[in-house]
Design a binder for these strands. Structure first.
Lengths: 336, 336
DNA sequence: CTCGGGTGCGAAAACGTTGCGATACTGAAT
DNA sequence: ATTCAGTATCGCAACGTTTTCGCACCCGAG
C-alpha cells in the first residue's frame, strides 16, 4: 500500500518553491521580511496546493451536490443540457451527480436515498413526474426542476422548456410562406407534451391562414430516424403528394429525407423537410436541414440556476419557463 | 479471496485499514478526532465490507461516488462513454459526479479537493495526464483510469481505448481492396495519440501492399466538420485527384463529403470517403458513411469496471486495454 | 465470561511560529 | 578600490499548538 494521503502543508509548498518552511509561514502570516518576488511565487503555490490554515480547517468544505437524472442516455440533446447545467453549477460551486430514472420511480425510496446522500436538489430531464413523487421530494425538502417533462406536471412543479408551440408555428409558417399547402406532419410519441405543443403550433399556423390540417397527412411515432423514414414513406405515397414534411424532431426529419431519396424524390426540389432540435447531424445532412433550434445548453443552465435558487430558499416568480426557439433555415426547404 | 463467513466487524476493517479498532469506531460514530484522510479510507472500507451497526439492522445507504471528467462536453462520443460508465457504476452501486477539467489541472488542489469530497476514483476522458498529476492522485490514494488520453501517459497509468491502429488499417485496407491507390488522409490534431495511431494504421496498410503514402495527400487539423471540409477541398484539388479520402473522425468525413459535393463530385462514384467513430450522423448522412466504429459505451463500461477494481484494491493485469474497432461498410465507399 | 463495540486520556507526531543569526547586497565614507 | 554600516532576505533551531490515534478500560448482550 502506498503512503497516507496528505493534505496541503507548508512543507510541500516550501519544497516546491525551493524555500524553507519558515519562509512560507511568513508569507502566510503577512510578515514583511520576504522578498516580494519570493512572496508572489509562494502565494501562487499556496493557491495551487489549496492551502488552508490549520485552525480554520474546521469549516468543512463539504462538497455540495445536486442530481441530474435523464430518462435516456441516448438523446444527443442531453449532452448539451448537461453541458449547460455544468456551467451553471460551476459558478456556485455545486457538483453534479448524473443518473437515470430508477427502476421504481414511484416509491418513496428514491427521495429518501437522495436525502440520505445529501443531494440538495434534482433536475429531471424529459421524464415523467407525478404528484406522488413530487410530494415525496417535497417531504424530504429536495427541490425539483424538470426539463421538458413528458407529462403535464402539476402547476407547482418548476419546469424549463422551449417554446415548442411557437417553434411549430414558425416552421409551419415558413413552409406556408414558401407556398406549400399540403404539409405532412410527423408527430412525436403520443402523450409527450413537447410533441403535442409542436403539433398544435402546426395547426395554429394553418388555421391562421384559414387552412386546416388534413388528417391523412399525419403520422405518429417515437423520436427516431426509423419513425421518420417509415412515416415519410407513407405520407409521400398519398395522393396528391404532400409538397412538404414537418417532422417533430431532427432524427425523424433525417429519416424523412432518406425516405424521399428512396422514393426518388429530391429534397428540397420535390419535397421540403423541416425538423426540430437542431442537432449536429442537421447541419451536416444532405441537404443541410431547415429546423427549429432548441437552446438545450441554455435550458440546462436555466434549470440549474432555478434549482440553485430554490435550494437557497428563494421563490420562483413563475414555475414554468420557456426559452425561445429559433427557426434555422438551411437547404432542405424551397418554394413549392 | 479468503473466507468471509462472519458479519463485517470493526476489527476486520481496522486490520485492513491499518488502524486500531477504536479508530474505526470513532469513524462510525462520527467523532472528530480522526484525520479526514483516514476517515475517508475507513469509510470506503466500511461500505465495501457492508458494515452495519450492531443495533440497527437497516443498512444505511452511504453513497459512494467516483468522478468522470471530460475535456469537453461537445463531443457526442462522451455521452455514450458516460452511458456505459453509468451502467457499470449502477451495478456496484456507485454514483457518478461529472465534471470538466479544472482551470489549473497542474496544481495539487484538484486531487486534494477530490479527496476531501470523498471521491473514490477518477475517470479522465480524452484529457492529458502528466506524471505530476498522476503522483498527486496517487498521494491521495485516488485511482485514476483514463479513456483515450491525449498524450501517451506513463506506463503505469491505466487507460482504456480502442484499436485505433487496427481501425486505421482496416479502413485503409478496405479502400485498397476496392482498388483505390491515391488515398487522401485527413489527420487529427497533432499530438493526439488516437489520431497518431490511426495515421500509422493507414501507413501500415499501405506499406503492407508495398505502397507508400504521398505526403501531398495529407492534411491535418482538429476533429471538426470544418477541418474535413477545407482539407478535402484542398486534397481533391491535387493532380491526379485522390479517388478516396480517409478522415480521422466522422465529423471530418462528413465535412469531406460536403466538400466533394461542393466540387461537383459524387460520393462514392467519384470519390470514396471513410470516417472514424460511427456517430449517429454517420448513419444518417447522404450517403450513409462507411466508418470505423468505436465501442464508446463499452469503453465507458470497461473503464468504470477497472476503476472499481482498483478501488477495491485489486491489481490490473495490464494497465492498457484496447477494445476492438469494427469497420462498418455503408454507402460512401465504392470501387475506384 | 466472552465478544463486539464505545470512550477518556495521554503520548507522539505533525504542523506552524518566532527569535535570531548568517549571508548577500547596497551605498556611502575612507 | 576598500571598508563598513545598514538593510533585505531567508534559514536554523527551538518552541508552542493542534491533531491524531492507540491503550486501557468501560459497557451490554448472549
Amino acid at each position: 500500500m502506498s503512503r497516507e494521503p496528505q493534505r496541503a502543508t507548508l512543507a510541500a509548498v516550501a519544497r516546491e518553491a525551493g524555500v524553507s518552511v519558515p519562509t512560507v509561514s511568513k508569507v502566510v502570516n503577512g510578515r514583511t521580511d520576504v522578498a516580494s518576488e519570493t512572496r508572489a511565487r509562494i502565494e501562487a503555490l499556496l493557491v495551487r496546493h489549496g492551502y488552508v490554515a490549520r485552525g480554520q480547517g474546521g469549516a468543512q468544505p463539504v462538497s455540495r451536490t445536486v442530481e441530474v437524472v435523464f430518462d435516456t442516455m441516448r438523446s444527443p440533446n442531453n449532452l448539451d443540457i448537461l453541458h449547460g447545467a455544468l456551467e451553471a453549477a460551476a459558478a456556485e460551486p455545486v457538483e453534479i451527480v448524473v443518473g437515470t430514472v430508477p427502476e421504481d420511480p414511484l416509491g418513496a425510496a428514491w427521495a429518501r436515498r437522495m436525502s440520505a446522500a445529501h443531494r440538495e436538489g434534482l433536475i429531471l430531464v424529459t421524464s415523467e413526474i407525478n404528484t406522488q413523487q413530487w410530494r415525496q421530494f417535497a417531504e424530504q425538502n429536495i427541490p425539483v426542476v424538470t426539463i421538458d417533462p413528458i407529462n403535464l406536471p402539476g402547476p407547482d412543479v418548476p419546469s424549463v422548456g422551449a417554446t415548442n408551440f411557437n417553434g411549430g408555428m414558425a416552421a409551419t409558417a415558413h413552409l406556408l410562406d414558401l407556398g406549400h399547402r399540403r404539409i405532412g406532419f410527423i408527430e412525436g410519441p403520443p402523450g409527450a407534451m413537447v410533441a403535442i405543443a409542436r403539433l398544435h403550433g402546426y395547426h395554429a399556423a394553418l388555421s391562421q391562414r384559414g387552412l386546416t390540417g388534413d388528417p391523412a397527412l399525419m403520422m405518429a411515432g417515437p423520436f427516431t430516424f426509423e419513425t421518420g423514414f417509415s412515416a415519410a414513406l407513407e405520407l409521400l405515397a398519398r395522393e396528391p403528394r404532400p409538397t412538404a414534411l414537418f417532422a417533430s424532431n431532427d432524427g425523424q426529419a433525417l429519416g424523412a429525407i432518406e425516405a424521399a431519396r428512396t422514393l426518388g424524390l429530391r429534397v428540397p426540389e420535390d419535397v421540403s423537410v423541416v425538423g426540430f432540435d437542431d442537432i449536429n447531424a442537421a447541419r451536416w445532412s444532405a441537404p443541410p436541414l431547415t429546423t427549429v433550434r432548441q437552446p438545450f445548453a441554455e435550458m440546462g443552465r436555466v434549470a440549474m440556476r432555478r434549482l440553485l435558487r430554490l435550494i437557497a430558499g428563494d421563490e420562483l416568480a413563475s414555475p414554468r419557463v420557456e426559452l425561445a426557439t429559433q427557426l434555422i433555415i438551411r437547404k432542405s426547404t424551397a418554394p413549392a
